[in-house]
């Protein structure tokens, strides 16, 4: 019977390899990118809170405490580092995907990631300038860049999990 079916071309071919088993990028780098991404999102949100408290303290005239400034600065460097590393890792993952696996949302995710990273770096530079130059407006520019970067990170995550 099977021979007859084979002759007629009606017999199914052997079951192919499941699509997730030949997935690119490697599941480990994909998982690392995902964990770093959620870590970046959490860090950014905490950083917004710390930045808010810092700016409020400046506006109040007494300035932030040393602990608050150190925490905000340390987390700032962490966020910039995480964003840069994860954007590079994500881009590597995208380039190693098979063309047929890529979707528009992957490209949009990458574009938003690069935008967010550029904004984080910009926010960092503005914060550095604000620290060295006594121009208060630069703190607001730093805040605005950081808020837009955080928004872009939120959007980046939303695009890919949607």
């Amino acid at each position: 019977m099977m021979a007859l079916l084979l002759l007629q071309g009606l017999a199914p071919p052997p079951p192919p390899t499941p699509i997730w088993e030949e997935a690119r990028p490697h599941p480990a780098t994909y998982r690392l990118h995902r964990i770093l991404g959620y870590g970046l999102l959490a860090g950014s949100l905490v950083q917004v809170g710390l930045g808010w408290a810092t700016l409020s303290a400046y506006e109040g005239g007494q300035g932030p405490s040393g602990t608050l400034r150190t925490a905000h600065r340390t987390l700032g460097y962490t966020v910039v580092g995480l964003a840069s590393a994860n954007t590079l890792l994500g881009s590597w993952n995208l380039l190693s995907m098979k063309p047929e696996q890529r979707r528009r949302k992957h490209y949009l995710h990458a574009l938003l990631s690069w935008t967010a990273t550029a904004l984080y770096v910009t926010a960092g530079v503005l914060a550095f300038q604000a620290r060295t130059l006594p121009e208060f407006d630069r703190y607001y520019a730093h805040r605005n860049a950081a808020l837009v970067a955080t928004g872009a990170t939120l959007l980046t995550v939303a695009v890919i999990v949607w």
Partner: peptide, 27 residues
């Protein structure tokens, strides 16, 4: 082939294939 659907989320594709019992019913 049940295990060759791609929705852009490999975890979801694997879940759906397992719901459809792709080992016993590959097509």
């Amino acid at each position: 082939p049940v295990a060759r659907f791609s929705s852009g989320n490999l975890q979801r594709d694997q879940d759906v294939a397992e719901i459809l019992e792709y080992r016993a019913h590959p097509y």
